[in-house]
Design a protein around this nucleic acid. Structure first.
Length: 500
RNA sequence: GAGGGUGUAGCUCAGCUGGUAGAGCAACGGCCUUUUAAGCCGUGGGUCCAGGGUUCGAUUCCCUGCACCCUCACCA
């Protein structure tokens, strides 16, 4: 027999014994009076009144000693010790206790006391089995000495932790904490924006034509309409349509899907917050971003700085602003702003950079930037005023020809956000799309598609608008000190498991 | 996509130069009513990732495949 099956069989046998004792191994509900943490907070060892509580949780440690035992149960708030003694529970109750396994969910009712060694503990007067666990969780022993917590043989196998996140969460409280923080980060962003009058909206994830970013899409097929559909790679073009419609400030927090490589910064589906506001430009948006991110950091972590992978990141505004070409000049000593493709190619060769195919000027510039500048952008920094070739949806710079009013925020060498004064000139937008069509014809699979409906909307008229996209996963990585995006996505994309 | 690494019990890991595998925890049985990595005595548990090859013999050496991890590339 499969050894795991043997462990499961033992537990099923116990389950059957429990049923024969009249115990329902899968109860319908249990009324709690306290969480584990609340018991610890409420108990006054020297208080005159006794404290009787009902708590529920998963059995995570067990020390059996004949007719009395100690155990810990864990709920979302933490863990608390429970003392099971036959003379209190009765023989029938203790018989049920004997059939419990680590991992079972139980409810316990009883008086709180303090043990000889000083640990606040519930003396179980009643025990209710809430859910029998049939498969051994990698529950681990812990030793707590003062503030020192030692975990023995922690459940650490990354593959299993990602594939079976439920087990990871059940066993590793720090993982739960990360996802609580993620929720608070999103919640704080939402609160920040709602407090300033922005309207949260939902736009299509299934789109007849994708756009708003450079990426290959996931494609699917609508049977009833017998037509291809694409999962969105960005929200941008739909949100801008809403400004045509008269909304003056909208945002959307949603999944985007990009059919590309995966690494520690990329998951094929990821969460983006996009924001568009009328009558504003990218300068306004810079202020908004630095203020919002600082505010989120402050409200979620209680400080405006965070330690990320050993580096202290300081989010207090203002963030440094460096124009794109200036940033390259500082790193390479070269001013690329006037360079044509051969000159850029020569510079790239000098830097030992290579690009496959026959890239355009934008691609060369981007490559030079991302190799020479980006890794050095550790503290929050805005790179501003990008070359127009890189930004077909951004408005031309008001004073510098060849540039657009665009900025990207970088933190810890990673792109955090992308924003611009939105292009609202429909004739210019059409020309930019046509340039993209040219790149596409030349083999650039990620070049943008011309979107006639979007152009129609722009022709009706879109007010001057500032737009923003922030990577929610990346922001979460920064604020939770996560080294990889997989640590901030509950169920990250994985190759299929070998059939078990 | 390239290079490197890893894959052994439910979990964490040993296993030197080839001779069909060990530990701790978990599990099972026994003793134990204030323990806390509880303790003591005993027991069971393995397709050594998969498939080929070399060999008398492969967990070990070679090849191929798969998964995961790291670095680089791609993904601006």
């Amino acid at each position: 027999m499969d050894p795991l099956d043997e462990l499961r069989r033992q537990r099923i046998e116990k389950l059957e014994k429990l049923e024969s004792l009249g115990v329902n191994p899968y109860a319908h509900a249990f009324d709690r009076t306290h969480s584990a943490a609340e018991v610890l907070g409420a108990f006054e060892p020297d208080g005159a009144a006794s404290l009787t509580v009902a708590v529920a949780g998963r059995l995570v440690s067990l020390r059996r000693m004949g007719k009395a035992s100690f155990a810990h149960i864990a709920d979302a708030s933490g863990r608390i010790q429970v003392y099971f003694a036959q003379d209190r529970l009765g023989e029938a109750g203790y018989a049920v206790f004997r059939l419990l396994d680590l991992g079972d969910f139980i409810g316990v009712k009883g008086e709180v006391f303090r043990t000889r060694t000083g640990e606040t503990t519930i003396q179980a007067a009643e025990l209710t089995l809430l859910s029998k666990s049939l498969r051994p969780l990698p529950i681990v022993k812990e030793k707590i000495e003062g503030d020192e917590k030692t975990v023995y043989d922690a459940f650490a196998d990354k593959e299993t932790r990602y594939r079976q996140r439920y087990a990871d969460l059940a066993v590793n409280p720090d993982v739960r904490r990360t996802f609580v923080l993620r929720s608070r980060i999103v919640s704080e962003m939402r609160r920040y924006l709602e407090g300033r009058g922005y309207l949260e909206v939902e736009t299509p994830a299934l789109q007849p034509q994708y756009g708003g970013a450079f990426a290959r899409p996931f494609t699917t097929h609508h049977h009833a309409l017998d037509m291809p559909l694409y999962l969105r790679i960005a929200d941008e073009l739909y949100l801008k349509r809403l400004l045509v419609g008269g909304f003056e400030g909208v945002f959307e927090i949603a999944k985007d899907f990009r059919n590309e490589g995966m690494d520690r910064d990329h998951n094929p589906e990821f969460t983006m917050m996009e924001l568009y506001v009328a009558y504003r430009d990218y300068g306004f948006m810079q202020s908004l971003v630095e203020d919002m991110v600082h505010s989120v950091c402050l409200n979620v972590l209680g400080a405006g700085t965070v330690s990320h992978q050993g580096t202290e990141l300081r989010f207090e505004p203002p963030w440094e602003r460096i124009p794109f070409f200036e940033a390259i000049r500082r790193r390479t000593g070269e001013d690329c702003s006037g360079m044509d493709i051969p000159a850029l190619k020569a510079l790239a060769a000098g830097l030992r950079l290579q690009i496959e195919g026959s890239p355009g000027r934008g691609k060369w510039l981007d490559e030079i930037f991302s190799q020479t500048v980006q890794p050095h952008l550790v503290q929050p920094t805005f790179i501003t005023d990008y070359p127009i070739e890189l930004s077909p949806l951004a408005k031309k710079h008001r004073s510098s020809p060849g540039l657009v009013e665009r900025f990207e925020g970088f933190v810890a060498g990673r792109e955090l956000c992308n924003a611009f004064s939105e292009l609202n000139d429909p004739l210019d937008q059409r020309r930019r799309f046509q340039e993209q069509a040219g790149l596409r014809a030349a083999g650039d699979e990620e070049a943008m598609l011309l979107d006639e409906d979007f152009l129609r909307a722009l022709e009706y008229g879109m007010p001057p608008t500032a737009g923003l996209g922030i990577g929610v996963d990346r922001l979460t990585m920064l604020l939770t000190d996560a080294p990889t995006i997989r640590d901030v996505i509950l169920f990250p994309a994985m190759r299929p498991e070998r059939s078990a």
